[in-house]
């Protein structure tokens, strides 16, 4: 794998949008990895939470957009709570999701969920799922 770094890449618009929407400074993260160490969903993720930030820092947002990780983040705030630098990664995840869905449409179609699931889930799960997986 080879990443070609360039000024246009590391300063690209997508990254600026992520910073603006999330209110987070991506370069504040010093890649300690504590977010990934405590993330309850990390075991199922294809890239680690800290790598989401790392790739954004390098302008490699395409790799982030392709990842499962942003959809598996449960917004549990564990990472933000413990981050030694106070980076709110859950806000960054949300900004990436929102930007992606603005362009490519919703991630899930509520009507297409299995009827059985629909009947059983508490309201809360739909409403928050709707908020996270649709634009």
């Amino acid at each position: 794998m080879r990443i070609q770094l360039s000024a246009t890449k590391v300063h690209n618009d997508f990254i600026r949008k992520v910073e603006d929407m999330s209110g987070q400074d991506l370069l504040k993260c010093y890649q300690c990895g504590e977010c990934s160490a405590g993330c309850p969903a990390a075991f199922a993720m294809d890239i680690l939470p800290n790598q989401v930030i790392r790739l954004l820092q390098l302008g490699e947002h395409e790799a982030v957009l392709k990842s499962k990780t942003i959809w598996l983040c449960a917004a549990c705030q564990q990472c933000y709570t413990r981050c030694p630098k106070g980076v709110d990664l859950s806000r960054i995840m949300e900004a990436v999701r929102d930007l992606l869905m603005l362009e490519h449409g919703d991630r899930i179609v509520i009507e297409k969920l299995p009827a059985e699931t629909l009947a059983e889930f508490p309201q809360q799960a739909f409403i928050s799922g709707f908020r996270k997986y649709t634009a």
Partner: peptide, 8 residues
């Protein structure tokens, strides 16, 4: 975490 291998 081991950020070098990308695993928790």
């Amino acid at each position: 975490a081991d950020t070098l291998s990308g695993a928790s």
